[in-house]
Write a protein that binds this DNA or RNA. Structure first.
Lengths: 349, 349
DNA sequence: TAGAGCCTGGACAACGTTGTCAGGTGCGAG
DNA sequence: CTCGCACCTGACAACGTTGTCCAGGCTCTA
């Protein structure tokens, strides 16, 4: 029985139970501590016979290496952190999955947390991850000031921002071409004859929302259309506000004949609102979503490849760790317009 | 400058960069090591003046406590592991989010990984998490033999299985009432006049799939209906097989007039198949999904509360850690039939 | 004014692992 | 037969933190 461990238990009340350590294995196998370490790590220089004895002791005791101690010694934790807005948002599913796959390919585990779009919580999480000495961080930022990460980055924590750029620090960023995508989507509506086009999006303090709004304005301007204030709704976060915004721009003397929805949650709500009305209103949404093709009509969207965002970011992170990377870069991934019917409806004045 | 750290760098090539340690902070503040520890942990017994000096040193050096070392000393990592099938599956989004919330409430971080429905990968992941000394594990099992976890559980790793039971070990389980839910769903179809009802589900080696199949059989038997072999499709994993299965049971001399879909992915594919046909076929699916209400007709589903599954499991895990819990238990959460139209269509013979 | 008690601060030894280095053994060649 | 060399093996000191315990200085009371 592991004497030292048991004593520690009594003293510190720890909860490892009675985990055997390498020392215990060594004692049982009648070898030195370091020999056990060698066997556990598959290092060369151990006789097959000795190895067998050690392996037997390991199995008998149910030993498992304590990676905390290992990390303390080696400096690398082989784990990376992922901070996103909401684990439950379907947009982030493929993204985190992609990050996980890349991490796995590099033998690293993924620790993740949701910021719930709260900058303070983002910071708290990021620093907690740094305290655990993750090797790197993939961050979908909620806040717009990331100077708090500077000491960490200097200390060697690889950092990549995804979906939205970092604030006030120079760091790697991987994002979609939000501006271009929105512009193309709106131009698509214009090409189908629309002139009074509404825009419903998130708060402009969120980078993606601002960029998409900018794309909307650019497309309108390119077509020589003057945008009326009441065609735009910006702080649309919860479904209720989106609903009100949509209803407002659909009513009145000069109602919009088409809507550009700034993200997938907005799109879904707008679809609901439109489903309740008889007048056919065109719709293009930013972000693809499952079943978009099965609705009546199918929903035309500007699709971004969230898995590619995650993959690119994670790969970049590991290249930072390799030392392959030098200067921070901004990578923009293209979007793709997927036409399904709702964006091709003609205007009905 | 931290002399010891820098030396370690040269020797081991570690990548902390030049992280200051408590020793460095102590030296700079002109106090003892333990005093710094006290300040960092908010322990009592430090003069305000000393505390200020220490705090200044911390800020100046950009010190952050190394939790790896802390863990090594304290025995608890304040982190729990979550193993699920696929991070990108929308069913698991709310579940992991719920687990994360509970973990956060207990000051713990969440490490998670996908097993990709591969038992070997599940085991690999679980043991890797144990090597990191997570305090507990929430597992959505892929395999059906979890004896490999026995030493870990004995060593004090709290463990809760969700969505599917553990195999060959006695452990806490939280699951939905798959049997009852499926039975109710099928009974609903029968109540609307259907007798030839198809069932498309996953491989029966997956517990949920087997239970739902059992529920289907029970409902049919209760109604005195003899189930024909060709009404059932079991190993339906990928969309292509689901499609073929659906098409087969919809064709032939005695086609089914209703389909019960064994999970959300099956449901979605069946919706697609039905959308291509003129004959109205009733449909009830297990699992709710976004936009189910917006399809034509709305899809009737047996909804399970995946967030509640996650929350219940995580809470139980922390109660294990508190020592409040003694014997493993099996908790079954009720499902809810949500009628939206597709399940109320009459049979068209 | 002495003694008791409290508060603050620091020395030290763990926690479980791995890198370094030196000792020991066996084998082949000269 | 002896020397050298390759190969195994184990002792030891880190890694950065925290629990224990003791020393000194202070206040308060008899």
């Amino acid at each position: 029985m592991p004497e030292t461990t048991r004593r520690a238990d009594r003293l510190t009340g720890n909860r490892y139970g009675n985990r055997p350590t390498m020392k215990d294995v060594a004692a049982r196998a009648g070898v030195g501590l370091k020999t056990v370490s060698r066997v556990v790590n598959g290092e060369p220089g151990v006789t097959p016979d000795t190895e067998r004895r050690v392996q037997e002791a390991i199995d008998a005791l149910g030993f498992r290496r304590n990676d905390s101690a290992r990390v303390l010694r080696k400096g690398r934790t082989a784990s990376i952190g992922l901070i996103l807005e909401d684990l439950a948002d379907p947009f982030y599913g493929p993204l985190s999955r992609a990050v996980e796959e890349v991490a796995r390919a590099h033998g690293a585990l993924l620790i993740n947390g949701s910021s719930a779009e709260d900058p303070e919580r983002e910071q708290e999480l990021a620093l907690a991850l740094c305290a655990r000495r993750v090797d790197g961080l993939v961050v979908i930022p909620a806040g717009d000031d990331h100077r708090y990460l500077e000491p960490e980055i200097r200390a060697g924590v690889a950092t990549v921002f995804v979906d939205r750029p970092a604030g006030r620090i120079d760091a790697d960023v991987v994002l979609s071409d939000n501006y271009g995508g929105a512009r193309d989507g709106v131009a698509h509506l214009i090409a189908h004859g629309h002139r009074r086009i509404g825009f419903i999006g998130d708060m402009p303090r969120i980078h993606t929302a601002a960029e998409r709004l900018r794309g909307y304005r650019a497309a309108m301007e390119d077509a020589g259309i003057t945008v009326a204030e009441r065609w735009m709704s910006l702080g649309a976060t919860d479904p209720e506000r989106v609903r009100r915004a949509a209803e407002e721009m659909l009513a009145g003397p000069d109602p919009v004949t088409a809507v550009f929805a700034g993200n997938n949650r907005v799109t879904v709500t707008v679809v609901r609102v439109l489903a309740e009305r008889s007048r056919r209103v065109a719709l293009v949404g930013f972000d693809d979503f499952e079943l978009a093709d099965l609705l009546q009509p199918g929903v035309t969207v500007v699709a971004q490849d969230s898995a590619a965002l995650g993959r690119t970011a994670a790969e970049r992170l590991f290249r930072q760790l390799d030392g392959t990377l030098i200067a921070p870069e901004r990578i923009e991934l293209p979007t793709r317009l997927v036409t399904r019917g709702s964006g091709e409806l003609p205007p009905t004045d």
